[in-house]
Write a protein that binds this DNA or RNA. Structure first.
Lengths: 112, 112
DNA sequence: TTATTATTCAACCGATTGGTAGAATATCGG
DNA sequence: CCGATATTCTACCAATCGGTTGAATAATAA
């Protein structure tokens, strides 16, 4: 795996490891929101939300367009696609291996 | 989302946010390995690897069976399946929304 | 029994994280 | 211009993280 891709994965998984940030993402899935309106929905300070947004932005999951004094946030799907891809590949890989292992174990138990 | 499920997601995404831990998982996909043999493959100390394994274990991604003085590690696929599910659902959801948005923008641009 | 091996546990360190509060900056509305 | 609003920036704090080293524990080998 190329270094850059790996770092991107680090950032994306790190970003979505926080329930607050996952909630922000799902909130953003309904459409563009500015930081203030977004922050009002969460039980933490405005500044905390602003920081979370920055983490999501660094991971490439959110983009920002400044209109006047408001900053409007929008989802970026591409990095999510990569992250989802790694997990999905691993999953099928594991499932195949674990299924195979189970067969071996079952046959082994039945055989003797 | 139930609290327990959310915490599990936190742990899984947190666990795979580290490249070393992702490498451990792919190493483990080839079959059971004990901690020592696993550690020899990585450029960090035995203890560091031992800690990483514990993180993966807490996330439910790895199980351990102690045989004599050796601890053998094995993948657990279930939590990965959940994690992959959340991402996949989000991805589909986003893609749909962003495609729709793109259509709106394109039509808008063409229409006037 | 005694050494050696496999592993965790405990303590420590520096960097990062998630939160706060307050100051600085820029835009909007009167 | 002046006050209110939207936001970031800076500084701080406690907690967690990723790493190290050294001691403790338990099983194997001599």
């Amino acid at each position: 795996m190329p270094r850059a891709r790996s770092r991107r994965l680090d950032q994306v998984y790190g970003a979505i490891a926080s329930p607050t940030r996952r909630a922000i993402l799902t909130a953003l899935a309904a459409g563009e929101v500015n930081v203030g309106r977004l922050a009002r929905r969460f039980p933490v300070s405005f500044n905390a939300v602003s920081k979370h947004v920055k983490v999501l932005e660094r991971a490439g999951l959110v983009s920002r367009s400044v209109r006047g004094r408001e900053h409007w946030l929008r989802l970026r799907a591409e990095p999510l696609r990569e992250a989802s891809g790694w997990l999905a590949r691993q999953r099928v890989f594991w499932d195949a291996r674990l299924d195979a292992l189970e067969v071996v174990l079952r046959d082994d138990a039945g055989g003797r």
